[in-house]
């Protein structure tokens, strides 16, 4: 049923090459987006828990803004609105960035900042779930604020939230498909293109679905391995403290005109 994927396309490639190129962009977006999101998320999550009111308020503001605007809207804000509100020359320069970078960069920004806000909340939950005695014992040993976070609080909080970070990994990689709305030829966009070129809708999206499922499985298994590797000898297995909150799946309105 997937034979059509190996047929020649008009540009001399095979349809499977389109799919693989789409997969490449999906993976690149998910991978780099994840690490940026993780770095920002940890910093902002810590910021949510510090004594300094200003820092805590700024971290809170970040989370509320980026978590509560739908991903699709954020995608459009970065892609369409940002160049308009920047000073003329800079805005024009951004519009001139050639594809695929012209859509990859805004998509990367959008997904990492959105996911970072979600990770920040998990990190905060993890930190707040630790007994107060941990920070007190560290302080009593003369470890200051930074050293206490670095060596006592954050390592424990991150271990605690590995299960909920697993959902965030899944979340960012599923959300990569939203990037097709700003013209990034990632996996879903390529599937769509194949479907339009061959009229084999079922095959095209069936193949994409299988790839997404396989990726999800790999991501899940890797997180399980990480969880195992980080397990503290003698301690009980960690529970999902932040609850099984899944990232909201982004749904495109049926009538949505997809930007190509």
């Amino acid at each position: 049923m997937f034979e059509v994927l190996f047929e020649q396309t008009a540009d001399g490639q095979r349809y499977i090459d389109w799919l693989l190129s789409g997969l490449g962009w999906t993976l690149a977006l998910a991978f780099f987006g994840w690490w940026i999101a993780f770095a920002i998320g940890v910093v902002v999550g810590i910021g949510r828990t510090v004594q300094n009111r200003l820092v805590a308020a700024l971290a809170r503001l970040y989370v509320e803004i980026f978590r509560n605007i739908p991903v699709l809207v954020q995608m459009f804000l970065w892609y369409f609105v940002l160049p308009e509100i920047l000073p003329g020359s800079l805005g024009n320069a951004i519009k001139q960035i050639p594809p695929p970078w012209g859509s990859f960069v805004p998509a990367l920004l959008c997904l990492s900042l959105y996911t970072a806000a979600r990770i920040a909340e998990q990190v905060r939950a993890g930190i707040e779930a630790l007994p107060k005695g941990q920070a007190e014992a560290a302080n009593a040993l003369g470890l200051g604020g930074y050293l206490t976070y670095r060596y006592v609080i954050v390592p424990q909080a991150l271990r605690l939230i590995v299960p909920s970070l697993t959902s965030e990994v899944m979340g960012i990689y599923k959300n990569t498909s939203v990037a097709l709305t700003i013209g990034l030829m990632e996996l879903t966009a390529q599937a769509r293109q194949i479907s339009e070129a061959t009229f084999q809708t079922f095959t095209a999206f069936g193949a994409a679905t299988l790839i997404y499922l396989a990726l999800a499985l790999i991501a899940y298994q890797s997180m399980m391995l990480i969880d195992k590797a980080l397990h503290i000898p003698g301690s009980a297995p960690v529970k999902d403290i932040a609850g099984p909150e899944q990232p909201d799946d982004v749904q495109l309105p049926a009538t949505m005109e997809v930007v190509k």
Partner: peptide, 29 residues
């Protein structure tokens, strides 16, 4: 912090760092 270095404290609930081995608990500070 310099006072805390001179003052050792032992808590009712031990408060060892669970993610560090016994010897690492003693080496960190």
């Amino acid at each position: 912090n310099s006072v805390r270095c001179e003052v050792g404290m032992v808590f009712q609930s031990f408060n060892l760092f669970p993610h560090l081995s016994v010897v690492e608990n003693c080496m960190l500070a």
